[in-house]
Amino acid sequence: MEPFDLILIWAGIIAFGVIMYVLMDGFDLGVGILFPFAPTEEARDVMMNSVAPVWDGNETWLILGGAGLLAAFPLVYSIILPALYIGVFLMLAGLIFRGVAFEFRFKANRSRYLWNWAFAGGSSLAAFAQGVVVGSYIQGYETAGRVFTGGPFDWLTPFTVLTGVGLMIGYALLGSTWLIMKSEGYIQQWAYRITPFLLMAVLVIFGIISIWTPFVDEFVRERWLSHFHIIGLLPTLAVFCAWKLMSSVRKRQEGVPFVATMGLFIFTYLGLLVSKWPYVVPPNYTLYDAASAYESQLFLLVGLIFVIPIVLTYTAWSYWIFRGKVRAGEGYH
């Protein structure tokens, strides 16, 4: 028996990486989703400026997650990626387009509207695809002998479309509350106005997903029924966050709405984790089935222990440098 349960440590690292990605890339994808609805072109400048300094740092969590998953839980990587083959392509295409749009929009004049569409379309597509991943995870994957055996469009069902749309609107909510915090004047007023509608849509869709899930997944149904007193706590906390968000918007607070939205995401995410634990490739494989060799997990962990604190410090520093309001016509010099 090995001295530590590395599998648990790695599960923690990956779970942390995923929620970091969802929260951080979530708000900048959300800003992209809201792009077509912005009141003016000037507002779009401000919106893009508010995420420009940090978005690529946010996205690096996705790459680290992809590589880390291959290293620590290869079975997840080698079943879920084939199962979502076309969805993964759409997500990557979306991320590439919006990444390029970030760089070129500010340098363009006549072609700017094209970059606007690339930014909005790419962000929406990537967010939808990520929501579909969540839905397909709840649905489970058809496997045999540690290999995906389902069809090319198993991931596209009414349920996953709903989770896809749900995450899109959820990201848009993160985006609008981020804008409340980072903008002022008529742009902030616009963000205040749309936030309650987005929240309502999110609550309705999350609600439908929660009611639908036990019908899609028997395992979740049994877990919920047997551990209701503990699991019931998480949706309660999520609802509290939603209430806090609503009341803070009414009071025109600036930072609380974003924090409350993050809370909503975190508790929903935790709810999903405890509902499925310890299955990482439902319905057949747990994280222990999916793990790579002990020595491989250890070999990578050594490097990670040095690099993660640096990346976190750098991330915190970036956000600190670019703190405060973003004003129209002003870059950080």
């Binding site: 680290l64 590589a67 880390g68 291959l70 290293a71 620590a72 290869p74 079975l75 990587y77 080698s78 079943i79 990626l81 084939p82 540690r146 290999v147 995906f148 790579s292 060799a293 020595e295 491989s296 070999f299 990578l300 490097g303 990670l304």
Partner: peptide, 16 residues
């Protein structure tokens, strides 16, 4: 994916 699964113990840490 079969390659990824079979070689993950080495390729995973390298790429990471």
């Amino acid at each position: 994916s079969n390659f990824a699964q079979a070689t993950a113990n080495f390729m995973g840490p390298m790429l990471s």
